[in-house]
Design a binder for these strands. Structure first.
Lengths: 246, 246
DNA sequence: AAATTGGATCCTGGATCCAATTTAGAATAT
DNA sequence: ATATTCTAAATTGGATCCAGGATCCAATTT
C-alpha cells in the first residue's frame, strides 16, 4: 500500500530574518540614515514629540531609539534639554584617515592570501556597480562593500569591525568627500588597480596601492577643508570622547 | 537533577544611593561596571522588573539604560525576550591584542615627541599606584590610565578613542588576564622600562618595548586559553558585528 | 508513553499620565 | 531702555497601565 505522502510546511516559508519590525528599531534606523546622509544636518535639535508624531507612535519608542543613537555617537543628549545631532568636526575626517591607514593595510595583508575567487568576484561587482551609481548613499555603500570584500578574510573579527566603523564614519562626511574628490576618477583607477593586484596576489603592490589611495583621499580632504576653513562648526563636541583637549 | 546554575543578581549591588544623577545614568553605569568586572557573569538574563526593584525605580529608566548597554556591545537584546549579558568570546581577547599592536605603537610614536613632564609624572604615578593596587578593578583602571597617559599627545583623537575602547574591552577579560599572567612581575618590569624609554625620548626603544609588552601579553592569553580550551561559551555572539561568519 | 494543544503566567513593547526641569516671555524695577 | 524676577509654556524624565509575544505546564489526543 503506497502511503500517501503527508505534506509538511518545511521549507515553505523563508524564515524572514525580520520578524516584526519593532517601532523603536524602525525609528532608530530611519533616524540614523537621515543623519548619516545629511538630511538631518548637525546641530539640529530632535524633539521627541515631533518624531513620535512623524512616525505615528508615542514618545516611548522614540526615546529608546534616541538613547541608542546617542551611544553610537550620532546624538548628543543633555538631561531635560534633549537630543541634538552631533556636529561634524572636520578634524575627525582627517583623524579617520590616519586610523584607516593603520587598520586597512593590515587587514588587507592578513586577508590577501585567503581571498577566494568568490570574494574577488564580489569586489569586482561592487566596482561595476560603482560606475553607474548616482546617489551618494549608494555610492558610499558600494565603496564600503568593495573595501570590506577585500579585507573579509583577515581572520580578526574585531579588526574588521573597527574598519567598518571607520567606513561608516566616513559616510557622514561623504558630501564633503565628494566635493573634495571631484568626479572620483582617481578613486576609480585606484580601485581597479587595487583589485588587479589582489587578483594576482601581489601583496606589496596591493598594500602600496591601498596606502596611496588612502593617503590621496586624505590629502584631498585636507585641501578641501583648508579651503573651507571659515564657516562650519566653530563649537562642537563630536566623537571626540577620549583624551582631554589639551 | 544538577541543572546548570543560572546566574542571578542577588547581592550584586550595594545599595549605593546616588542622589544627584539621573536614574537611567546611575543604572547604566552600575550595570556596566558590574558586567565589566564580572559581578554579573555572561549569559545572565537581566529582568527589567528585577533591576527596577533593586534600584527602587520603575522599569522605564532601566529600559533606557539597557538600550544603551546593548549598543555598547555588553548586552544582547531579543524582542520580547529581554536582555542577556554578552558572552565572552575568547577569540575576541586575541583579536583585541592584534588591534592594539597596530594602534598603540602608532599612538606612542605620535605622542612621544610632545609628552610633557606632567604627562610623564602622571604615568609614573599610575605605576606607583599599580604596585599596591589590590582589587582587579583598580588594577585595570590604573593600567589603562598609564597607557593612555603616554599616548595622550598623539594628536589623533579618534585613534585615542579606539585605543581606549580596546583597553576597556580588555577589562572584561581581566580576570582571565590576571590568571594568565601570573603575578604580573613581567608587566611591571615592562611598564618601568617603557616609562624610562619615554622619559629619554628614545622612540625606537619605547616602541620595541611596547610591542614586546603587548606581544607577550597576547602569548600569555593564547596559552591560557589553549589550556582552558574546554568549558566556556561554545555558543555566543559577542561584539562580532561586522563581516559575515562564512 | 509521546506528542500536540489550550491556557495561565511571565515579561517585554508601547501608550498615557504626572512630575521635574528648562526656556521664553511678561511684568517689574533700576 | 536695560536688567531682573517671576510666571507659564514647552520639553524631558519617570510612573503606571494595557496589549501582545514568549514560556511553561497540564489536559487531551495519538
Amino acid at each position: 500500500m503506497p502511503r500517501k505522502p503527508i505534506p509538511t510546511l518545511s521549507g515553505v516559508f523563508t524564515p524572514t530574518e525580520t520578524p516584526a519590525h519593532l517601532a523603536r528599531d524602525v525609528i532608530e534606523s530611519a533616524l540614523r540614515e537621515a543623519i548619516m546622509d545629511g538630511r538631518i544636518p548637525p546641530e539640529t535639535p530632535l524633539r521627541q514629540e515631533e518624531i513620535a508624531a512623524l512616525f505615528g507612535v508615542s514618545r516611548m519608542p522614540v526615546r529608546e531609539a534616541l538613547r541608542r543613537l546617542e551611544s553610537q555617537g550620532l546624538l548628543h543628549i543633555q538631561p531635560y534639554k534633549g537630543a541634538v545631532v552631533t556636529a561634524l568636526i572636520s578634524q575627525d575626517a582627517i583623524d579617520t584617515y590616519g586610523v584607516r591607514l593603520l587598520l586597512e593595510p593590515e587587514a588587507l595583508r592578513l586577508s590577501l592570501p585567503h581571498l577566494s575567487d568568490t570574494d574577488l568576484a564580489e569586489a569586482s561587482a561592487r566596482l561595476t556597480a560603482l560606475r553607474q551609481a548616482r546617489d551618494s548613499a549608494t555610492l558610499a555603500r558600494l565603496n564600503r562593500e568593495f573595501h570590506m570584500a577585500l579585507y573579509r578574510r583577515a581572520g580578526n573579527a574585531r579588526l574588521l569591525y573597527l574598519i567598518e566603523q571607520e567606513l561608516e564614519q566616513e559616510e557622514r562626511f561623504l558630501r564633503f568627500h565628494l566635493s573634495a574628490m571631484g568626479t572620483g576618477h582617481q578613486a576609480r583607477d585606484d580601485h581597479d588597480a587595487l583589485l588587479d593586484a589582489a587578483r594576482s596576489g601581489d601583496e606589496s603592490r596591493a598594500l602600496a596601492l591601498l596606502r596611496r589611495h588612502l593617503s590621496q583621499a586624505e590629502q584631498a580632504i585636507r585641501h578641501y577643508l583648508a579651503g573651507q576653513d571659515n564657516a562650519e562648526s566653530p563649537a562642537g563636541d563630536a566623537p571626540r570622547i577620549a583624551g582631554e583637549p589639551k
